[in-house]
């Protein structure tokens, strides 16, 4: 309930989902500074040596899911959030844990200015034409 007694519907509309409680799975830990807000299109890649995440008792089932999903094919932060049906903030914390454990690494997106220099945009245009 909001403090001023206004019904929530005055503030949240159909684009806002149901009211939920914070997730226990991050155990109240903060996403650390090193992660500084991983971009939604940053790509998570499982390290080849992380072949048995379930044996690591420090990891939650959600951690294990991420390690397994990103082994088959590297996944963006947005895709992981959608696939695991978890809020983005929570997924960022879980990825941070896995980076600390050296079970995954993250490839940050190339800034748009560099894409122009690298001529990647020409490839994007021809890729779109060929769709």
């Amino acid at each position: 309930m909001s403090g001023d007694g206004q019904p929530r519907s005055h503030w949240f509309d159909d684009e806002a989902g149901p009211v939920v409680r914070p997730y226990a799975m991050t155990r109240g830990r903060t996403s650390h500074a090193a992660q500084h807000r991983l971009d939604l299109i940053a790509v998570v890649v499982t390290e080849a040596h992380a072949d048995d995440p379930e044996a690591d008792h420090m990891l939650s089932p959600e951690h294990v899911d991420i390690v397994q999903l990103c082994r088959d094919a590297p996944q963006s932060v947005a895709e992981l959030a959608a696939e695991l049906n978890l809020p983005i903030g929570v997924v960022r914390v879980l990825i941070g844990d896995l980076v600390d454990e050296e079970m995954v690494h993250v490839t940050r997106p190339v800034p748009p200015a560099e894409l122009v220099d690298e001529n990647i945009l020409r490839d994007v245009i021809s890729g779109l034409r060929a769709l």
Partner: peptide
């Protein structure tokens, strides 16, 4: 696909659960 961002009542994104 849909992704969700957690918001506090103040309407700010939640980056952590502290």
């Amino acid at each position: 696909l849909r992704t969700e961002e957690l918001l506090t009542e103040a309407g700010r994104p939640v980056d952590d659960t502290s």
